[in-house]
Design a protein around this nucleic acid. Structure first.
Lengths: 315, 315
DNA sequence: ACCCGCCGCGAAAATACCTTTCATTTGTGA
DNA sequence: TCACAAATGAAAGGTATTTTCGCGGCGGGT
């Protein structure tokens, strides 16, 4: 593979210790330009300055394009690339692309303000994403492993698992129950407070009841948890308020975290993200501990769903 | 006349509305590989995996070099580049150089290993969190703003909004509908495919139908969307497979991203994260555009719930 | 002032690289 | 098993890059 270097003719034997100028550095390009500029001809300086000023823009240009833009010729562009330490324009261009990407990622505006009514959609997406990612990091950092451990153990050996949640948390509760069912556990999500209580009183030692409430004081969720607690079930609270009333009836408390909320971004959004992370952790923990039965169950539930997809396969 | 069961649609999608895949993003390349991999042929997958695994190394290679390294042909390499959204290999190579520079400078996506059966809980939490955060970043990076914009506009002025989703996506659909209701829009989530279709045929121009499916080929979701499409409603698909069947009946396609999945971590988990981010963006966008009515609606729905909380105030 | 030779420069030829086409192979469903 | 379609690579066909080559400007010598 004789390609990148030694474009020279075959007849010339390459000098053994030929001093190759320098390894092309992506970030140090601006410096290199300044260093080399004095020993460059006028046209070459123009080219060098242009690329240093707008790496991103130049990376998009072909030799010809850059030659035009700088009012020079292809040959000059190539000469400049060589002068800067690259084997040719192609490699300079790659370095330029790298540089552009670097300063694009480095120029992360670090958006910290609230989402407001007149933010353009781009900002909305950026802020929302940023917030959610922050929430995830916070949640993971604040999770008490021993509490998770305890909850997982209880769930893995439970005869039956009930999950309570209303409002936005109801979806999280359903999600957890759905997943647990998939790995062969007996789990049920209750959104209706009356039914929840009626079912809760059926629980006994060895069963698990999980309450999900961000505020920690949603009566519709506290009541069934209390009932379960009173009947000897192991109770778990997933809440954003570890001092909330719900924790009075919880054997194990898993704390979710909250991001700053604003008028347009109700607390429900980030609390939901946080809650989902927690229940996913619970789920995987349980799946690990019941792997013997969980693995085949997961597989067969996947297969059972296959026919619900349109036949047109896509590899 | 076509058969009843024909999947063909009576309504013809305007030709120029060719869905342009996505603007090539340097950082989101790994995500793009994951998104597109399923619809790639074996050889193309090999190429895609190779570039994702070693961007720096591949950026140094010519088409021929990469073809050799992956044991394929130049044509296949170019095809892969196209599949990933670049006009050709040259541009993929530039993006690769950018990615390499990025991860060299620390903004490295850091390849986390799969969650395995005997990972301690601490690792499970760490990996899960890392994956979710990555998924969020990928999703945001891959979102086509103009599609979001279009969907938001349609929703903001819709007479009625229907959301379809089954399985895990059903919860996302419910979440969206719930939120939209809160700001005074007429929105409904349908999990039952029959009811969904029955309702879909009631839709007409000015209404919006949203289908949420990770695989892009869930019949139970495609059918109602098609019905809505045929009746003139504006249709939106939120899917992880921009080439899936569902997009045939979608005026606007919002692509969700997928994390590497493992046995213990079904795809549903990260796709859910991704989907939620997308619908949150939709929601906030709509809330902005209907601020006059949304703000008071949010406030009053909050107050209506207050009494459902236990009186014992917290701090 | 004029001529001479050197250097920077770009036009165009030569080459390397990328893209497209097309025939062959491989896989798939009837 | 056959027929058909998709996938694939070899090689032709185009672009982009590199090299060659000679023109023209500039300074120094006469």
């Amino acid at each position: 593979m004789k390609e990148n270097f030694s474009r020279r003719s075959d007849r010339v034997r390459p000098a053994p210790a030929q001093h190759r100028p320098a390894p092309p550095e992506p970030g140090a390009l601006a410096a290199k330009v300044r260093t080399m500029a004095p020993s460059m001809t006028r046209s070459m300086q123009r080219v060098a300055e242009t690329v240093a000023a707008d790496p991103a823009g130049c990376a998009a240009l072909t030799v010809t394009g850059l030659a035009e833009r700088t009012g020079t010729s292809e040959a000059t562009v190539v000469r400049t690339a060589r002068m800067l330490g690259y084997p040719g324009y192609r490699d300079l261009r790659l370095a330029l692309a790298g540089l552009a990407a670097q300063q694009a990622s480095g120029a992360a505006p670090a958006i910290t303000t609230d989402i407001s009514v007149d933010d353009p959609l781009t900002d909305v997406i950026a802020k929302l994403t940023q917030d959610e990612r922050q929430t995830l990091a916070d949640t993971a950092g604040a999770l008490d492993i021993s509490q998770v451990e305890a909850a997982v153990s209880a769930m893995a050996s439970a005869r039956r698992i009930d999950v309570y949640g209303v409002g936005a948390s109801s979806l999280v509760a359903q999600d957890l129950a759905q997943k647990l069912l998939r790995i062969g556990l007996v789990a049920h999500a209750h959104a209706d407070p009356h039914l929840a209580v009626t079912n809760a009183v059926q629980l006994r030692a060895g069963d698990v009841a999980i309450a999900i409430t961000h505020s920690g004081r949603t009566v519709d969720v506290i009541e069934p948890l209390q009932a379960a607690f009173d009947h000897g079930a192991t109770t778990v609270a997933v809440t954003g308020r570890p001092d909330g009333e719900v924790t009075q009836y919880a054997d194990h408390v898993l704390t979710t975290s909250t991001a700053r909320e604003s008028e347009l971004r109700p607390a429900a959004m980030s609390s939901r993200t946080s809650q989902l992370l927690v229940i996913d952790c619970l789920f995987i923990g349980v799946a690990q501990r019941t792997y013997e039965t969980a693995a085949p169950a997961l597989r067969s539930s996947y297969e059972a769903l296959a026919h619900r997809h349109s036949p047109r396969d896509v590899r």
